[in-house]
Nucleic acid binder design. Structure first.
Length: 345
DNA sequence: AACTGTGTTGAT
DNA sequence: TCAACACAGTTG
C-alpha cells in the first residue's frame, strides 16, 4: 500500500492514454471482500450473486485482478510469465506493464498509455534509463515500487555528470571485472542489530560517496546499487543523518544482513569497477581474515557459472553466438531462488 | 489472516 | 501470448 514518495512526478499518465479502455461501458461489479468461488457471499445482489464472485477483468493489458481488490501486473516472455508486482491502483499496474513492455519489446511494444517518445527530453531520458538496466533490474524496481524513484535519481545523476562521457556504450562484462577496493568495515553489533543501518565511517563516506550537503540528496538520501560476489544486486539507501552526524546505509541494509547472516565482527568490503561504468560491488566475509587486495571478488570468470545456486552454463544458448548471454545479470528478489528469466540481449 | 504470485488451462 | 482461475507459499 505504501507508495514511493516520488511517484508519478513525471509525465501525466492521463494525458498519455493510447489504447482506449475497451470496456469502459460495463463498469464491473464491485468486488466485495469475498474471494473468487470459495466464499458463499450472501450479498443480496438481486439475483446475480453467481456473478458477484467473479473477479472483474482489468481494462488494461497485462493487468490482472487480485482477490483482495488489488491489481497484479505481468508480462509474458516466450512461454514464461514474468510477474511485475501488485498494485493498489489499476492504472499504476498498467503503467508498470508499459515500462516492462517497452524494456522487453522495445518502443514498438503495445502499451496501455502513450509510449515513451524520444522527442520529449524527459521521455528520452527514461528510454535511456530503460536501456541502461537489465530486464531483471527493471522488473525488480517495478516489483518493489522503486522504479519512479530510481528513474528520477538517474536523471539527477545525468545532470551532474553530463558532458565528457555522453554517448558511451555499455562496458562489456569482461571489462567490468576489474575492481578497486574502496574500503572495508568490520561491522559492529549495531550495524547488524535492529537499527537496520550500517554506519559508513565518515572519512570513507566523504571520500568515496560524497553527498552535497544541503542538497535534497543529503537529507532524503540516494539509492546505491551494489552487486555481490554472486552477481546479485542489492539496493541501499545512502544518506546523512544530521542527528548523529553520520553517513549510513539504511533501507535495504537489513535484508542484506539477514540474507548474508552477517554477524558483528564480520567484514563488509566496498568495491568499484575501474571502467567508466563505476559499478559498485559489495562483499562480505566472516570476521578476522585480512582481505587480499589482489584478489577482488570476481564474477564472470568462474569456471562454473551459477546464478543463485542454479548452474546456468547448461541453459540453451541459441546457436552459440557469443553475444548471447551478455546481459545475464539476474538478481531476482531474494524470495525467488529459481531461474526466472535469463535474458539474452 | 492477509496477501502475493505461481501452476495451470483454455482462448486468441 | 494472454488472461482467468485456483490456491500454495509468504509475510506481517
Amino acid at each position: 500500500m505504501k507508495r514511493g514518495c516520488v511517484e508519478e512526478v513525471s509525465s501525466d499518465p492521463e494525458k498519455r492514454l493510447q489504447v482506449a479502455p475497451q470496456h469502459i461501458v460495463t463498469e464491473v461489479l464491485q468486488r466485495m471482500g469475498s474471494g473468487v468461488s470459495m466464499v458463499l457471499d450472501p450479498t443480496p445482489e438481486g439475483g446475480i450473486k453467481a456473478e458477484s464472485r467473479k473477479l472483474p477483468s482489468s481494462r488494461y493489458k497485462g493487468v490482472v485482478p487480485q482477490l483482495n481488490g488489488r491489481w497484479g501486473a505481468q508480462i509474458y516472455e516466450r512461454t514464461r510469465r514474468v510477474w511485475l508486482g501488485t498494485f493498489g491502483d489499476e492504472a499504476e499496474a498498467a503503467r508498470a506493464y508499459d515500462v516492462a513492455a517497452q524494456r522487453f519489446r522495445g518502443q514498438e511494444a503495445t502499451t496501455n498509455f502513450q509510449p515513451l517518445s524520444e522527442t520529449h527530453d524527459d521521455e528520452a531520458a527514461e528510454l535511456t534509463f530503460l536501456l541502461e538496466h537489465s530486464k531483471a533490474e527493471i522488473v525488480d524496481m517495478l516489483r518493489k515500487h522503486t522504479y519512479r524513484e530510481e528513474l528520477e535519481q538517474s536523471k539527477r545523476d545525468a545532470q551532474d555528470g553530463r558532458g565528457a562521457i555522453a554517448g558511451k556504450r555499455r562496458t562489456p562484462s569482461h571489462l567490468r571485472s576489474v575492481r578497486d577496493l574502496l574500503f572495508e568495515k568490520v561491522v559492529t553489533p549495531s550495524d547488524v542489530g535492529k537499527l537496520n543501518r550500517l554506519v559508513i565511517p565518515k572519512h570513507h563516506a566523504e571520500k568515496h560517496f560524497p553527498l552535497k550537503s544541503n542538497s535534497s540528496m543529503a537529507c532524503k538520501g540516494v539509492l546505491f546499487n551494489y552487486e555481490d560476489a554472486g552477481g546479485k544486486v542489492w539496493r541501499f539507501r545512502y544518506s546523512y543523518w544530521k542527528s548523529s552526524q553520520s553517513y549510513v546505509l539504511t533501507k535495504g541494509w537489513n535484508r542484506f544482513v539477514k540474507e548474508k547472516n552477517l554477524k558483528a565482527g564480520d567484514v563488509v568490503s566496498f568495491w568499484r569497477s575501474t571502467g567508466p561504468e563505476k559499478r559498485m560491488y559489495i562483499d562480505r566475509r566472516t570476521g578476522g581474515v585480512v582481505c587480499d587486495r589482489s584478489a577482488p571478488p570476481a564474477i564472470g570468470q568462474l569456471p562454473v557459472v551459477k546464478l543463485f545456486g542454479v548452474d546456468i552454463s547448461e541453459l540453451p544458448a541459441s546457436g552459440g553466438d557469443a553475444k548471447r548471454g551478455r546481459e545475464m545479470e539476474l538478481f531476482p528478489p531474494s524470495q525467488f531462488f529459481k531461474r526466472q528469466f535469463v535474458e539474452a540481449l
